[in-house]
Amino acid sequence: NITNLCPFDEVFNATRFASVYAWNRKRISNCVADYSVLYNLAPFFTFKCYGVSPTKLNDLCFTNVYADSFVIRGDEVRQIAPGQTGNIADYNYKLPDDFTGCVIAWNSNKLDSKVSGNYNYLYRLFRKSNLKPFERDISTEIYQAGNKPCNGVAGFNCYFPLRSYSFRPTYGVGHQPYRVVVLSFELLHAPATVCGPKKST
């Protein structure tokens, strides 16, 4: 009989979030998941669920729940959905087409922007091929755009693959930082360890 609440607040209220290319994953298990708490945590810009209804979450049980978190800019949030393409979905964080879970995003301009520009958040701009779903690539190998090998040196047709967002508070919403948490629900042929409040007794 599990009584402890799932530590969603640790994920959502973390002081620092990860850069999207090096997104963070927390496995959540053996706890009571009260998803209604999430609705009250922040004024969400996005709370979209796929393959599951957000209002039914509190009635369900899962084997595992994974919470992935990272920062992107406002106009990239739409890429965090099944079947999307674009720089983020292709080279940084890719959801599977049959994704079961929820994408939660909110504006973090007050936390993640600086007047002089916050350069701490990076994204991958160049990659030889698209990522597979939930693949994480943290390599910093020089990207070869031409025929000549780069031998690890940046220059003509040889690019450092990561680029930094420079978040400034005066930017338009599309270029402001957004914190994203992706909850993916895993149903294996194994005992369910993460249940809503109704199912945990």
Rank of each mutant, 00 (worst) to 15 (best):
A33C: 09
S36M: 09
Y91S: 06
A154M: 10
L188A: 15
R25T: 06
G51A: 07
I72N: 01
P133W: 05
W23F: 08
F45V: 15
N147D: 07
R25V: 02
L5H: 12
A81F: 04
F99A: 01
C195N: 07
A192K: 13
N13T: 10
P96W: 03
F17N: 03
D97I: 13
F45A: 15
I104Y: 14
W106L: 05
S53M: 12
V194I: 11
V194A: 12
V77N: 04
P149E: 12
T193D: 14
S108I: 02
N118F: 04
N92T: 01
P197T: 15
V52R: 06
N1W: 08
K132T: 11
T55Q: 15
T46S: 14
N1K: 12
V115F: 08
K148F: 11
R16K: 15
Q84M: 14
L183E: 00
K26N: 08
R168L: 01
H189I: 09
L162N: 03
G51N: 11
T55Y: 13
Y159A: 01
N13Q: 10
T55P: 10
F12A: 07
G196L: 11
S164D: 04
G74A: 04
N64W: 12
P177V: 01
Q176W: 03
Y121T: 04
G174Q: 06
N151H: 12
Y171K: 00
K132F: 09
F126W: 10
L41R: 14
N64F: 11
Q84T: 12
D112V: 03
P54G: 10
K114Q: 11
A14D: 09
F70V: 00
S29G: 10
S113R: 02
N118Q: 07
E76G: 03
P96F: 03
S129I: 10
N107D: 01
P177N: 00
S164L: 03
N157A: 02
N87G: 11
Y93K: 02
N120P: 04
I142S: 03
V32H: 11
S36N: 13
Q79N: 06
K26W: 07
L187M: 14
E76Y: 03
R124S: 00
L131V: 10
K110L: 08
P43Y: 09
V181T: 05
E186H: 11
C61V: 10
